[in-house]
């Protein structure tokens, strides 16, 4: 039985990775999860300089999901390279660094700094709804998406995954633009912009008023978007959004994802990633699937 997948030349032992921002750089979760089991660890977004993030409260629970407005707090690329990369190097897993920025030059500075570092892939977040500048602005306009992809590709030494926002009318337009810009792969979806109001206090629950929605409630939207995007582009897709179980992950793969990321599920169960991997293996066994790649985009009709 083969569970390994190849993403633009990088082999992952299985298609399950962590979703950026929900797993730090793996250190905290390594008490519960054997990181060697994971296809890859995708790290929290990192910028050229440290970011303070948003005021608290930064998270709120909603029915079947959650909102977050962490605001990409991060220690900056220098600290990240000194501490987080050496930590992850101890494990037999792929390292995918998620990059955020406020301007094209911010992104490129981080990507350049990572050129000589032992990381396997870069995931460029052009879809964060929680910061005022940059971020999502690059992910909502096809021209801007193509431009930033080209700029990053010019300086990148590792394969580049562009991470797309669902907060658009037609995600396939942005996907095609990123592909035209030279993206090696696409990640989708980032969170959907939401809001929660405390009716007793008549105030917003999040200090930022709005936050990105994630969790099982967004899963059907993510499956639909992965399906549409897989039909529109030829680069591999990493599917995410509300994957809580192996069944959810397989659904995403059948829709067209070559790999999947697990995010909010880590909060509900710190061992979610390992359980999902075991569940995918069990599914393959019962359904006599010899190679996980048979399942990619294999939904009938």
């Amino acid at each position: 039985m083969n569970t390994s997948v190849n993403l633009c030349g990088v082999t992952l032992k299985n298609p399950v990775m962590t979703a950026s921002g929900t797993f730090g750089s793996g250190e905290e979760y390594s008490e519960f999860v054997d990181l060697n089991r994971l296809g890859a660890v995708v790290t929290k977004g990192v910028a050229n300089v440290p970011w303070q993030g948003n005021p608290t409260p930064r998270v709120a629970e909603v029915y079947g999901g959650m909102l977050n407005a962490v605001g990409l707090q991060n220690p900056g690329i220098e600290r990240f390279c000194q501490r987080d990369i050496p930590f992850l190097r101890q494990f037999d897993t792929r390292i995918i660094v998620n990059v955020c920025g406020k301007s094209e030059s911010d992104y490129c500075e981080v990507v350049q700094r990572l050129a000589e570092e032992p990381v396997d892939m870069l995931e460029i977040n052009i879809s964060c709804p929680n910061v005022k500048e940059g971020g999502i602005a690059f992910g909502q306009d096809p021209k801007a998406a193509e431009r930033i992809t080209k700029a990053v590709k010019r300086v990148a030494r590792q394969p580049v995954i562009m991470k797309l926002s669902p907060n658009v009318t037609d995600i396939t337009e942005i996907a095609k633009a990123a592909e035209a810009g030279g993206a090696d792969a696409l990640s989708l979806i980032n969170t959907l912009t939401g809001m929660k109001i405390d009716i007793e206090r008549r105030s917003f629950v999040l200090a930022n008023k709005t936050g990105g929605m994630s969790g099982p409630a967004i899963h059907p939207i993510a499956v639909r978007m992965v399906y549409q995007t897989a039909k529109a582009v030829s680069v591999p897709i990493i599917g995410m959004g509300g994957i809580m179980t192996a069944e959810d992950a397989i659904e995403m793969i059948l829709a067209g994802a070559s790999a999947v990321s697990v995010g909010t599920a880590n909060f509900t169960d710190p061992r979610a990633t390992e359980k999902i991997i075991a569940g995918i293996e069990a599914y393959m066994q019962t359904h006599q699937v010899e190679d996980i790649r048979e399942l990619v985009g294999a939904v009938n009709g």
């Binding site: 930064r58 707090q73 900056g76 909060f267």
Partner: peptide, 23 residues
């Protein structure tokens, strides 16, 4: 959200720069 230090949901502001977060 995570309860174990991974997600950065639960921060408080500190006077000095924190060793872990670098902010």
């Amino acid at each position: 959200a995570c309860g174990i230090g991974a997600c950065l949901a639960c921060v408080c502001q500190t006077k000095e720069k924190d060793a872990h977060t670098n902010v």
